[in-house]
Amino acid sequence: MKTSVVLLFTILLFSGCGDEPKKNPPQKSESDKIKNWARPGVQGQMSGAYFVYKNPLSSADTLISVYSPQAMMTQIHESYTTEDGLAGMREKKEIVVHSDETLVLKQGGLHVMLMNLKKDLSENDSVEVALEFTKAGTVKLKLPVKNNK
């Protein structure tokens, strides 16, 4: 009987107790599917925009500025984690894009900061963005406003 009790205790201890529930793999979000888009925003407030751009030139090019007629001020920013573990954001003055390289602006990383919006941005609107490269010159994009949830 004593042996049985010890055996039962051991089995119970190592079976089930403390098991972490199995987690399903992360689901692919909408943001992975939609590459060129802008976030809805309220007049006077901020919004963000995202796109991909492949450098078609045979040499490296540099993105030096960005402009949108829908915002009073437009910049490229980067979300990052600070040394003390906080979510932070910093301006990127220049971004070098090598030949055939694809520049990706996406949630949680590089993004266009649309500051002080001139009017509300709602779903089905679009945002015009002009990218200024040192070699390719001005590249214009029209980004649909998506409520990316």
Binding site: M72, M73, T82, L86, A87, G88, R90, M115, N116
Partner: peptide, 24 residues
């Protein structure tokens, strides 16, 4: 939850806007 002003910028209308580092 921690937050702190990280940097400020002056907009074209001369208004200051600040950004924050924060717990996620």
């Amino acid at each position: 939850v921690r937050s702190q002003v990280s940097f400020t910028q002056v907009r074209e209308d001369d208004k200051e806007v600040y950004f924050m580092n924060h717990s996620d």
